[in-house]
Design a protein around this nucleic acid. Sequence first.
RNA 1: GGGCGCAUAGCUCAGUUGGUUAGAGCGCAGCCCUGAUAAGGCUGAGGUCCCAAGUUCGAGUCUUGGUGCGCCCA
Length: 1147
Amino acid sequence: MFRPVDSNVHFPTLELQILDLWEEKRIYEKSLAQREGRPKFVFYEGPPTANGLPHPGHCLTRAIKDLFPRYRTMRGYRCERKAGWDTHGLPVEVEVCKDLGIHSKEEIEAYGVEPFIHRCQESVWRYMREWRELTRRIGFWLHLDEAYVTYHQSYVESVWWSLKVLFDRGLLYQGHKIVWWWAQGGTALSSGEVGQGYREVADPSVYVRFPLLDEAGNETDTDLLVWTTTPWTLPSNQFAAVHPELEYAVVRDAELGRKLIIAKELVETIAGKVKRDLTVESTCRGTDLVGRRYLPPFDGYYKTLGNVVGKLADGGEQHVAWRVTAADFVTTDSGTGVVHEAPAFGEVDYDLLLAEQARFEPGQGPDLICAVAPDGRFTDEGPDYCRGRWVKDCDKDIARDLKQRGLLYHQEQYIHQYPFCWRAENDPLIQYPRKSWFIRTSQFKEAMLANNAKINWLPEHIRDGRFGNFLATNVDWALSRERYWGTPLPIWVCEKTGQMVAIGSYEELLSKPGCTGTEVWEEAKRKNPDLPDDLKVHKPYIDAITFDSPFAEGARMRRVSEVIDCWYDSGAMPFAQWGYPHRGAEQFADQFPADFISEAIDQTRGWFYSQLAISTLLFGKEANDAARQHEVEQAAKEATTAAVKPTVHPYPHPYRNCIVLGLMLGEDGQKMSKSKRNYREPNEIFDRYGADALRWYFFANQPPWTSIRYSEQAIKDSIPEFLLRLWNVYNFLVGYATSDDNWNPAAEIKGKVDQLNSAQLSSAATYTDPGDRSELDRWILSELASTCRTVVERLDAYDNFVAAGAIQKFVDVLSNWYVRRSRDRFWASGFTADKHDAYWTLYECLITTAKLIAPFTPFLAEALWQNLAVAPFGDRAVESVHLCDYPTGDVSLIDEELSQRMEQLREIASLGRAARMEAKLKVRQPLSKVEVVLADTRHQAWLEEHAALIREELNVKQVEFTQQAEKYINYTVLPNLPRLGPRLGKQLPALRKLLTEANPADLLQQLNEQGKVTLELNGEPVELDAEDIQVRLQAKEGWAAAQGKTSVVVLNTELNDDLIHEGIARDVVRIIQDRRKTIGCQLSDRIEVGIETDDASVVSAVEKFRDYIASETLARQLVLEPLAGVEPGDGKAGEARFKAYVRRLAE
RNA sequence: GGGCGCAUAGCUCAGUUGGUUAGAGCGCAGCCCUGAUAAGGCUGAGGUCCCAAGUUCGAGUCUUGGUGCGCCCA
């Protein structure tokens, strides 16, 4: 039998019990085991970093990641869920530095790379307990114990393998890159990190004269006027750039006594800034200036290189630097139209240097000059007053120096956005040239786009919008990081020749001829046996391993010092989670590509990209075709190739469907932040409201890609709006079933019932075929079936929002119409066939609802199942709702027409209540009659059959349907626009006018008699049939009436004695029931009642309705006098007053 | 500065291919119901659908421009 239900349920407590149940019975494992051999549904877990505390945003991701795998499992798929952890990267190092109270790379080196790495490895698990607990508590079923971890040896070796493939294919190369450089920390920052640190700052903005030189190298009377906001870059100047197509002016500054060259359209602006007259003497085009030499403001390099001339590739010679070059990026938005070029400190400037180098014969062109050391301080090539100083501190001194030398033409403050280090917020970043390793992703841009085009993105616009645009502007992936805690770049260089090889595994490394250096690791392990073995593939141990160079006799191969971008780690997860190809080939073959992944939109350029890029370059057709070509070319050389080559997979891969979640904002609409405290800790949410409340809030309130504002109230509201409403229905069923009725579904059924589908229930003697049940039962079963159908359809399309809405709607009609209308059936004493039907129908609705909600609110679903199925049937039923198949809805039970009719019936009832409200007649007071006027009479006959229901619902004696209701109603005839619009087009306004002016009664009569209406429109006859027009009703004033879309309900408000007495009787019943409750009667307790009153109408009412009152209240005796020794309850019926005495009778 | 997205009731959000009187939940106010009862229901107030122009018989919906906000990138 069912256990009693706690109507005062506390969901968080319930959920903890269910978690224990799942674990004790290993339900998750069983849910997987029972789908062994079934079609697969592949899910990838995007690895979170566990070195920070989880917040509500992570709950959202974890909830969505749980929903679809649970759903698919119930649909019969095998869905493995391997957990994963992202463990490398700068954030980890920064955390450790914070603990150590250090900042720069030098300090790390001083502390020791080895202990530093150990700390990093420990630090990544710092909040593991919290993450595991969150995962468990929110009900995210995931194989936590078999998680992949990016620092594990097997993972690292997979990454190495993939890099070796890329290297051997010629897709990994070393180049220079101008990076955003954190000089104090000695590292480049990723674009994402840079983006976090932009702040508004005021920088000096200087206009500097670069005197032009004549052919002989002598100074002329004309200057280039150059603008920059980074004066510290001027000592590293190499060129001045002009736009070739722009018009330049040579202007005379009389005060200065010199001529200046600036963009013509900026003459006025600059004259305004310096408040002088600048007279244009002549103009020329940018191209005319190209090649002219000038004297740079600082001579640190110029003094030695100023006169160096190189051979041009196409013959001739030219000075290598300090001359005017052409560049398309020059604009007149600001500055002077002449741009100072220090290629070391800007990406486009560096490109310009590369272009210049290309014009010369190899080795003859300009070298990069850079007067700044990697620590951000000036070198000896800088002006003497700057040497050894942090560049940004020198801006003022440089400006002062230029002023003293007369080269500073103008100076002002310039307010702009400038990036700072995101962890050390007082450190401005500078752009700085570094050697870096790149992946040639741009070569496969089209392939990535083709792959992307096949991915099902939700929302759709990501594909061609944010993600597609990003791919279309793809640049090569800067892979290397000059840091410590990351996957070491597996490239070893010949110390003599500089030739390189890539290594694909630790074993391969050890097998190299003359390999030495493992003793460093062995020694460390001997000293500290607790060191995880995985560390041996990390710095500093890996750096100690060297081997004989195959390129030069007696030379050694040594590893490059860099580690790689941790985004590469996570992007390699589709194969690296299995250790592929060194191991896990089977799992990889089985679990590639993913059917479903989901992360927030900030992963567009993160995990979504890294996965797609790696996968396209390894497993895409284009990349593999190119690789074969490359191998042919390399065949002559001694190319090493990976033992296992990637095979081609058709797009899309590595994921087919991707839900891009919106970002979750704090309560105040701002980004969630610990310091602002604009959200609550997840654990507190679970303790207060429960995981189901939070999950339902995520799933049912908005499509998942909407950025949602964290709202505690909304989470709280999930409880009464959905969870508790369903709980109340469940409580209702169990309450009656465990009363005198003692209704037990298990009593009549023998043997297994498994999932309690209708086929399994139908063996019960009292179970009638749903088709033979009452209309109300058939209706709710129809609603249930169509809800199942909708939910399945929407979940298959990854649309949790509409699916959840359908479930919520169903629970609402189940509670507010089915149960409401069925109360009497349950309350009736004894069993009838109809009562059995009511039990079975409601039982089946609840059982099915439990299955429906299982992926959404798994705890509540389980609670229902445990009591509705497991409690009565024991091990004859499936032991958990999560082991059931998902209900898809029996379409034969769907009755669209019944559904529509019931809808209309509900509308009539609702209108009747509204009319009562209007007339201030409470429902307890019976009325003699309502009249219902229908605009659409299709369902009239059916509605007439159900007049009883309306009578009961509205407490009236008679219901009458009528169309001839002119006294209550105004009719309006309107055109059906979607139908007539395409047909009549511009004539539509005329028709509308015609219809408004016509007599509606005549039109309707015509329509009824002939089935059509003919009107004359602009001299042309137009025929309208019933579908072409719509009739709207409007209640006339002065009646107790209410109007809806299709009907009007009019009340007869006249009362007679019978009606009044009946109303009083109902008041009496209500007060008696109230007393029953007060004195603690059980549902079926019998009582004795006394009514004391002076009011004649109450006396008459009690006498006239004695039987009614007695049966409603289970009263054995009813007398019109006080009961001795009983506390009475006061009652009021209209103006009449009475006292009700209730005493419980012993059995 | 560029890309993408968003803008509808006090709040959180729906609004299908353009179609008649733009919806839901919460909140607020008033009321009803009373054996699902520490529940439930009804009704109401509250909207220049961000602004402007255009396309169309008809625009919350389509187009263009603008404003504001968010994210990503510089």
